[in-house]
């Protein structure tokens, strides 16, 4: 198992008040899985992702990444795990505006023990992999939203992480660019990458092979995409809508000019 989570809970303290963001989550994710995490706003998706990405530590429970008990690690060790085993993609890209695409992608290797000598070569290869070979010397403000997210994906990939985590990676993108980014994820998945993404859109989740739904910090359901009842209902609705649209288009074409 790449990811093994048991009885994971996370409590935020706000003064005297306690917010239970996660209440005993069990989850296993294997190598080369493509998992979509869904749920209403406030259900704990981001909290779970932050724990998966070793950005945050659980209040209780077990999180093993590739067999290593991360819940027992200190700040420096977690930093190393983040650098070497995790690629994190943010909704708002989080690129350095002063630096070119290439420099942005090289950033994780500055902090790496292994790859810093070959940083430039690896960064170029990663940008090539996300289809931005011709945009390396552009700064983020000279790139479109989709291109920016591709740079962020390249940055996440550059240290060859065992898991790629993306918290609403298409949340800031229009439908065309969303499609582009999802296509990129599919391609990476085909190449063997383990991927976990958080999304609100069934359309995006449709590309994953498994959907985990959260509610109030608990796992509500965990099904292969094709068997997820909510997703099947959405598919049916989408098919109907498509048929209706085609019908309207047909009518429009048939109408006199």
């Amino acid at each position: 198992m790449t990811i093994r989570i048991r009885e994971l809970s996370k409590v935020y303290k706000l003064g005297v008040e306690r917010v239970h963001a996660l209440r005993g989550v069990d989850l296993d994710i294997g190598k080369n899985e493509f998992v979509a995490i869904m749920g209403a706003s406030g259900s704990g998706k981001s909290t779970l992702m932050n724990v998966l990405g070793c950005l945050d530590r659980p209040s209780r429970g077990v999180y093993e990444l590739n067999g290593k008990p991360t819940h027992r690690m200190g700040a420096a060790q977690l930093a190393r795990i983040r650098n070497e085993e995790i690629g994190f993609i943010f909704q708002s890209f989080e690129l350095l505006n002063r630096a070119t695409a290439l420099k942005n992608v090289m950033l994780p290797m500055i902090y790496s023990r292994r790859h810093w000598r070959s940083a430039r070569k690896r960064a170029k290869a990663a940008l090539d992999r996300v289809g931005l070979a011709d945009r390396m010397s552009h700064k983020p403000n000279q790139l479109s939203g989709g291109q920016r997210q591709r740079v962020a994906v390249a940055r996440a990939l550059v240290n060859e992480p065992s898991i790629l985590l993306a918290d609403e990676p298409t949340g800031n993108l229009d439908s065309v660019t969303t499609h582009e980014i999802i296509e990129l994820f599919r391609q990476l998945h085909r190449e063997g990458q383990t991927i976990v993404i958080v999304t609100h859109e069934e359309e995006v989740a449709a590309n994953a092979d498994r959907i985990v739904r959260l509610r109030d910090g608990r796992v509500l359901s965990d099904h292969p995409t094709a068997e997820d009842p909510i997703h099947r209902r959405w598919l049916a609705g989408a098919a109907a809508a498509a048929a209706e649209a085609a019908l309207k288009e047909g009518l429009a074409e048939g109408a006199p000019a």
């Binding site: 700040a75 420096a76 930093a79 983040r82 989080e94 350095l96 950033l107 994780p108 902090y111």
Partner: peptide, 16 residues
């Protein structure tokens, strides 16, 4: 602050 957050997220140790 955001940049520091990012640097830490991609593996910069506190010491670094």
């Amino acid at each position: 602050t955001r940049e520091i957050g990012l640097r830490k997220a991609i593996g910069a140790r506190p010491m670094v």
